[in-house]
């Protein structure tokens, strides 16, 4: 077949390639603006802890849910293989359930006693890797009543699939 002449090839190449550069540049600008100008950031590590002494270190010596102000709660949770500990350490129930009223703002303060776990609460922005030696913290607001499943989403061994719980919003 007759080949297109060289000049028209160059024009077509640029016509295709320039938008493919412009789109990522726009996305990069959007990332920079959202992170630094608007402050939309993902949850971060907020402290360190000796994983061998989690039981004695506040606030993890008394894990659980407590009210710290009007409509404001703190959920102190310890992850271990293969369950979430959100009550006093001698409570052996595998599946943890927490209940807060509608409109609550809950701060999750979480660490791991052993391997890496992950805390993800469905239909919220809460998603943190829970790393031994680090304290992870994030806050979420619950306006819509319902049951929010939270799962360990970082593979942690044989019983990984047992590691889930429910947050009830009334």
């Amino acid at each position: 077949m007759q080949r297109p002449d060289r000049m028209s090839i160059y024009i077509y190449e640029f016509a295709w390639i320039l938008p493919s550069i412009a789109i990522p540049v726009a996305m990069i600008v959007a990332i920079a603006i959202s992170a630094f100008a608007m402050g939309i950031n993902v949850q971060g590590v907020t402290g360190r802890i000796d994983p061998a002494r989690v039981n004695e270190t506040p606030p993890f010596d008394r894990p659980g849910l407590r009210q710290v102000g009007p409509n404001r709660y703190e959920a102190v949770i310890v992850a271990e293989i293969w369950r979430w500990v959100a009550a006093t350490p001698d409570d052996k129930s595998r599946r943890v359930e927490l209940t807060v009223p509608r409109g609550s703002e809950v701060t999750f303060i979480v660490t791991s006693r052993d391997v890496i776990h992950g805390l993800k609460i469905e239909n919220t922005d809460v998603n943190m890797m829970i790393i031994p030696g680090q304290i992870s913290r994030t806050t979420a607001r619950f306006d819509i009543p319902g049951d929010y499943l939270f799962v360990c989403h970082e593979y942690c061994g044989t019983g990984h699939h047992f590691m889930y719980g429910v947050l009830h919003v009334e």
Binding site: I31, A35, F36, V42, G44, V45, N127, M128, M129, E154
Partner: peptide, 13 residues
């Protein structure tokens, strides 16, 4: 691959 580990806004961006 590690955004969920919490690296801070500069590294994330």
């Amino acid at each position: 691959h590690m955004f969920a580990t919490g690296m801070g806004p500069v590294a994330d961006s």
